[in-house]
Nucleic acid binder design. Structure first.
Lengths: 192, 192
DNA sequence: GCCCAAACGAGACGCCGCGTCTCGTCTGAG
DNA sequence: CTCAGACGAGACGCGGCGTCTCGTTTGGGC
């Protein structure tokens, strides 16, 4: 992991490009995003973009990673797994269920679909931490007797259920997400 | 709903366009799909495409709907809900878990992300029937005591869990899907 | 079987964004 | 202070876009 970069990269340009990308992503959508307009908006030469990002999806991924309003919502630990995960899923549902949240989730999905490497980076930052902490919270609960694989499946069912509802334009509510958590946890042997 | 179309549309051209689209979709992917190449491949004038399809996503959706190898896999009814849904989910997982199946699912997702109307049509044909028959199979089972909303959440968790695994590049296996079904159905009160 | 409007195949057109390139200027590490 | 390399700006050829205009084919109505 040797950092072989004696290069004098302009931080000002880098940030301007990422922020311009996010603005135009929000205004015109992923489909109508043009490098020319990003450069013009950021007050930057096109070459400066092509110098540092190999492809458009790579730039989009970096722009999404640069957003500071997308910190993943993580479950608390009060000792009551069912309550903790229900509240966590409820909050997540409220966030992803809003117009803005749903639009962002669809954009993340579309960007991830374009390139496996982009998918990996976005997952590492967004859905990964969600999965991991929910899994750990589940593993710490004494009342749940399940194999690690079963816990993984349970977490995926909860998160996947929400993602699926958004992608298929179904309603995603706080109450519905909490209900899903209750069903899945009961299936893992928790008393609900 | 008056059908005001005394128009003499060429069936030959229509089919050639849809099939050329599917071929190019498979060869170059959604991102590199060009109308020019579709027209050339189908042996058709560009105007013939623009005359009948308003946008590129609309054409992609019709092409996917025209594929006859994508008939949704539906659960049987042998009287044993757990076994029926486990096998169904297992088959679905095997199909979606293959390289080709996963690629198709990602393409469907990407196409659906581009436009709400496209999303609605694809859902109506593919995920919709899956949801509905799984829901009905669940409702017919006497051993399951749950509200309609709970059944919906359960179905979404099962299907969503699989979709999520594919989109996040996790392994999707027959056994894993069956295990997820067992967890969720146990959560609905079934004895597993 | 004839007619004719509409759909067809072909391709030219202007436009725009792509990715590359070449300027002259700016800047920061040594 | 120096100078290599990043920078802003924008010209360039290319290719696909969506529209248009040809002349030809086709199929429903008479």
């Amino acid at each position: 992991m040797t950092d072989s970069r004696p290069r004098r990269r302009s931080e000002r340009a880098r940030v301007a490009i990422l922020e311009a990308t996010n603005v135009l992503l929000h205004d015109h959508g992923l489909e109508n995003l043009s490098i020319e307009e990003i450069a013009a908006t950021a007050g930057v030469g096109k070459q400066t973009i092509y110098r540092w990002w190999p492809t458009r999806p790579a730039l989009v991924a970096d722009a999404l990673l640069h957003r500071d309003d997308l910190a993943p919502l993580l479950p608390k630990d009060t000792g009551d797994v069912v309550k903790d995960l229900s509240r966590w899923a409820g909050g997540l549902a409220e966030s992803l269920g809003s117009d803005r949240g749903a639009a962002t989730l669809r954009m993340l999905t579309a960007a991830a679909t374009e390139h496996p490497e982009i998918s990996r980076r976005l997952h590492e930052r967004f859905s990964g931490p969600l999965q991991e902490t929910a899994y750990e919270r589940l593993s710490a609960a004494k009342e749940i007797k399940a194999t690690p694989a079963q816990r993984r499946h349970a977490v995926d069912a909860i998160i996947g259920g929400m993602v699926y509802k958004v992608l298929s334009h179904q309603k995603l509510t706080r109450a519905g997400a909490a209900e899903t958590v209750r069903i899945v946890l009961r299936g893992l042997g928790a008393s609900v």
